[in-house]
Write a protein that binds this DNA or RNA. Sequence first.
DNA 1: TGCCAGGCCGGGT
DNA 2: ACCCGGCATGGC
Length: 220
Amino acid sequence: MPDLRAAFKAMLDHFGPQHWWPGDSSLEIAIGAILTQNTSWQNVTKALDNLKGRDVMDAHALDRLPLAELAELIRPAGYFRLKAKRLKNFLRWLVDRFDGSMDAMAAVGLSTLREELLSINGIGPETADSILLYAVGKPTFVVDAYTHRIAVRHGWIDPEAGYDELKEYFEGLLPGDVATLNEMHALIVNVGKRLCRPREALCGDCPLKPFLPEHGPVEL
DNA sequence: TGCCAGGCCGGGT
DNA sequence: ACCCGGCATGGC
């Protein structure tokens, strides 16, 4: 059983605080969470800039914006027709349920909110947890492809482990406060982007190197 | 120039 | 319950 708290400290010492999630508002964070599905953040920022440039970074404004216009604005984020619908689905829920207020949303409990988000077409577990943790400050751990890859390569978990299994694994070994869960996922993404890409060996200066098993990285 | 990027859905076994 | 194709742009 690896000391995930020590791994957390090693990454934090190496990279420093990540100040996640980047964004000017909780709504922007939630929208970014949907736009970044299987998409580089760099592309997402272009789409977010388009929305801000059109002054529609507002739940009611976006809800009113025709689907085709929304799609065009978010085109740089990829899957733009699909994501326009997904944004609309989320916004419809946000407007109907909370009159478009992310603050009102934040007043509801974690498990209720998570179930409701997961019932929205286009919002899966990672997007839901990202919104919960980074937009409304709920204590939930976000699992992504990097989390899976890093955990498997270090021999921490079975390669066949699914989302919920990984989530429970990390939550079981980490402090449960929002600040730690926030920082941990951000650090994992940082390490993953730099040092744990597909079919590449781990770099020599990876802060997680001391946490590898004796025989070195597990193939993935 | 391919490969990859902070997934998710729907239809088919 | 898995497995797979589809979805799309931009950077390295």
